[in-house]
Amino acid sequence: MPGTGTYPRTANRIGLSEVRRVEEETSTFRALDYRYGGGWCHEAALAQLSWAYRLLDAAGTERVKARLCSALGDLTSLAGWTAFDAGFPDAAHARFDRALELAREGGDNGLVANILYRKGRVYLHYDAPSQALVAFTQGERAATAAGSALMLSVLCANQAWAHAKLGRRDEAIRSLGRADEAFSRAGDEYVPVWVRFFDQNDLAAMIGTVYTELAIGVDPAYAVAACDELTCVVDRYGTEMTRSRSFCLVLLAIDYLLMGDVDEAAEVGGHALAAAEGMNSARFADRLRPLETEAVRRAEHTEARELAERIATFAA
C-alpha cells in the first residue's frame, strides 16, 4: 500500500517533482477510499502526511510553494475524509481545519470550497444539518470566488440534502434546481482531481438522496421519484466507486419499503450488503440504520424481518 514505505530525506530546496509526488500519492489514496472505504487507507494517508509536511520547511519558488500548499491541503483533506469514513469525526474536523489553512495559504479558493463541503458532510452525517448548511454556504462563497460552477453544483446539491433533513421541502427543491443549473454551466471548465467524482451520475445520486430524505421525513410519495433516479444511478457506477454504489443501493431499498414493495426492498438491500463485502467504511454501517429501522417497522413480512436480521449481523 502507498505511504507505508521508507521516504527519502527531505531536500533543502524543492521543485515541482516533490509536489507532484504528493499529488500522485493523494490520487492513489483517493482511489482506494472510493473503492474500499477510508478504513483501508487512513493510516497510510497519515504516514504520508508526516513526510509531506516536512516539505513546508524547504525553500522553493513562490509558484512551487503555492502549489505545495494546495497539494498538502488536498492530502490533508483526504486524510480528514478517510477519518470520517472510518468513524472518527473529531479527527476529521481537525484535519479539515488544517487543510483549510493550507488551501488559503496557497490561494486555492476552489479547494477551500471543497474542504468546506466535506466538513458539511460530517455535520450532515451526524444529524447536524443546520451546521452543515453553514459550512455549505461558506463553501458556496469560496466556489463563487474560484469561478467553479461544478463546485457550486456540489454545494447546492448538499444544501438541498441539509434542507431535506430539516423538513424544508421547498428550499430543498430550489437548491436542487440551483445545483442542476450550475452543473449545466460547468461545461468544459477545468476540473481539479478532488471534484472529478461529481459527474452527471453523482448529481443524479444526490437528487435521489434528497428525494429519499423527503420521502422519509416529509412525504412518502417522494420515494417514487427517488427510485427513478437511483435505479439508473446504481447501474452506471463502476467498481471504482463501490462505496457510492452501495450507499445508493441502501437508499433504493428504503424507497422500495416506503412504496410497499417489500420483496424488491429485500433484494436490493441484499445487493447493498453484498457490494459492501470487503469494504472498510464505518459510514456505510451508519447508513444502514434507516434501512434497518424501516425493515423492522414491517417485521410482519418475512422478507423485511430477514433483511433487518441481515443488517444487524452485518453491523455486528
Rank of each mutant, 00 (worst) to 15 (best):
A146T: 08
A179D: 00
F197L: 07
H163N: 08
F198A: 02
D235G: 15
S175E: 14
A142P: 00
A186G: 04
A160P: 01
C156A: 14
A162L: 08
G208V: 05
D219E: 13
A143T: 08
V193C: 02
I216P: 00
G217D: 00
A145P: 06
N201H: 06
A221V: 15
F136T: 04
M206V: 02
M151Y: 03
D199P: 04
A221E: 12
V134Y: 12
V233S: 08
R174T: 10
G167W: 10
D219Q: 09
W161R: 10
A164C: 09
A223S: 15
S148W: 07
Y190R: 10
A142W: 04
A221T: 11
A132F: 05
D235E: 15
A221I: 08
A179P: 00
A215D: 06
V233Q: 05
D202L: 03
F197C: 05
Y222I: 09
M151G: 12
S148E: 06
G167M: 12
A145H: 02
A160N: 01
A160L: 07
A146S: 13
V234N: 06
E140V: 09
D188F: 06
V233R: 05
K165M: 11
L230Y: 08
L133Y: 02
T212D: 11
A132C: 00
M206D: 12
P220E: 06
G187R: 13
A164R: 01
Y222E: 09
G139S: 07
F136I: 09
Y190S: 12
A172C: 08
S184D: 15
R168H: 15
A164V: 03
A160W: 01
T137H: 15
D235P: 06
S153I: 00
R178Q: 11
V193Y: 14
R168G: 06
P192H: 05
L230C: 07
A149T: 03
Q159S: 15
F198S: 02
G167N: 10
T231Q: 14
R178H: 14
L214W: 05
S184F: 01
L214N: 07
D180V: 11
M206S: 08
Y222R: 12
L230M: 11
F197I: 08
A182W: 02
Y237G: 04
Y222N: 03
G208Y: 02
F183L: 10
I173F: 00
A215K: 12
R168L: 12
L152Y: 03
G147C: 07
A162Q: 09
L152I: 04
S184E: 15
D202V: 02
A145E: 14
E171Y: 07
P192W: 04
V234E: 11
A145F: 01
A221D: 14
E181I: 02
D202F: 00
A179Q: 00
P192N: 01
F183G: 00
F183E: 01
A146R: 10
R236D: 14
E240C: 00
W194H: 10
D235S: 13
G208P: 10
A205R: 09
N201M: 03
D188L: 06
M206N: 10
E213P: 02
E140D: 04
D180N: 05
